[in-house]
Computed example of a mutant assay.
Amino acid sequence: MKYRTKGTCSSSIDIEMDGNVIKSVIFTGGCNGNLQGISKLVEGMSAEDAISRLKGIKCGFKPTSCPDQLAIALESIVGKAD
Rank of each mutant, 00 (worst) to 15 (best):
S39C: 08
K23T: 05
I38M: 12
G7L: 04
L35V: 06
K40T: 01
D68N: 13
N34A: 08
D49I: 09
N34M: 05
R4Y: 12
K6C: 06
G29A: 06
T5R: 06
G33H: 14
S52I: 04
E75C: 12
S10P: 03
G29W: 01
D82N: 12
D68E: 08
V25Q: 11
L35Q: 07
K40D: 05
F61W: 07
R53E: 11
F61T: 11
F27L: 07
K58F: 01
K40G: 06
A73G: 00
V25C: 05
R53G: 06
K58P: 03
K2N: 11
T28E: 13
G19D: 14
T64D: 07
T5Q: 04
G30A: 07
D68F: 06
P67H: 09
C66K: 07
T28W: 08
P63Y: 12
L74K: 13
I77H: 04
S46M: 01
K62S: 10
G79Q: 11
S52G: 06
G60H: 11
S52D: 14
K6E: 07
K62V: 02
K80C: 09
S76F: 12
K55M: 15
A81P: 02
D18N: 11
T8E: 00
A73L: 04
K58I: 07
C31W: 03
I72G: 00
F27D: 05
V42N: 14
L41C: 06
K55C: 05
A50E: 01
D18A: 10
D14W: 08
K62A: 15
G19K: 13
T64P: 04
K62W: 05
M45R: 15
Q69C: 00
A50H: 01
I51Y: 00
P63G: 12
S39N: 07
M1I: 15
Q36D: 01
G37V: 08
D18C: 05
V78M: 15
S24K: 13
G60T: 10
I77Y: 14
C9N: 13
I22K: 01
G79L: 12
S76Q: 15
R53W: 01
I51K: 00
G44T: 07
G29C: 06
M45A: 13
Y3T: 05
D68Q: 11
G79I: 10
A71D: 02
T64S: 04
A50Y: 04
M1V: 14
L74H: 13
N20T: 10
P63S: 13
I22R: 00
N20Y: 03
C9I: 04
Q36I: 12
E16S: 10
N32A: 14
G44N: 03
K62P: 02
S10C: 10
C31H: 03
T8H: 04
K6N: 09
S12C: 09
S39Y: 02
G44L: 03
I72D: 13
N34H: 09
R53D: 01
L74S: 12
D14Y: 13
S12R: 04
S46I: 02
Y3G: 03
M17R: 07
S65C: 07
I57K: 03
S39I: 06
S39F: 02
I77W: 04
R4G: 06
S76T: 14
G19I: 14
G37W: 04
A73K: 03
Q69D: 00
E48G: 05
E16G: 00
